[in-house]
Amino acid sequence: MQQNLNFLVVDDFSTMRRIIKNLLNDLGYANVAEADDGNTALPMLKNGNFDFLITDWNMPGMPGLDLLKHVRAEPRLSKMPVLMLTAEAKREQIVEAAQAGVSGYVIKPFTAATLKEKIDKILAAQAAA
């Protein structure tokens, strides 16, 4: 497993960013940056060297779905794994995220095991592609 991957965690709640960052650290991923919404995250993604994006959906400023669409529309970022980690639980939203090209979808509240499982699955799929 590539433990030196660069993660960007996007959530408007600092509590949740901290939890995700801690869980990622426990999983052996030490390089975790944070952003509080899509507007902050997008320039970081464009100018940075991130390998994996974990984003909330419901955020002030640019919501996660719009961020996902921007990422998929940007040639350099279009293949980046994007895991949606959100409390949004409507079927049509999950369908919408899937259509926008989400790599995985975890609903809050979640467990450490679920997060690990989804990240591993996405990375395995990426390696196989």
């Binding site: 709640f13 509590t15 949740m16 939890i19 801690n22 409390a87 809050k108 509240p109 979640f110 467990t111």
Partner: peptide, 14 residues
């Protein structure tokens, strides 16, 4: 680690 994860309530209730 579980205590840490449980703090996610703050995000959901928030």
């Amino acid at each position: 680690a579980e205590v840490l994860l449980a703090q996610g309530y703050q995000d959901l209730s928030g």
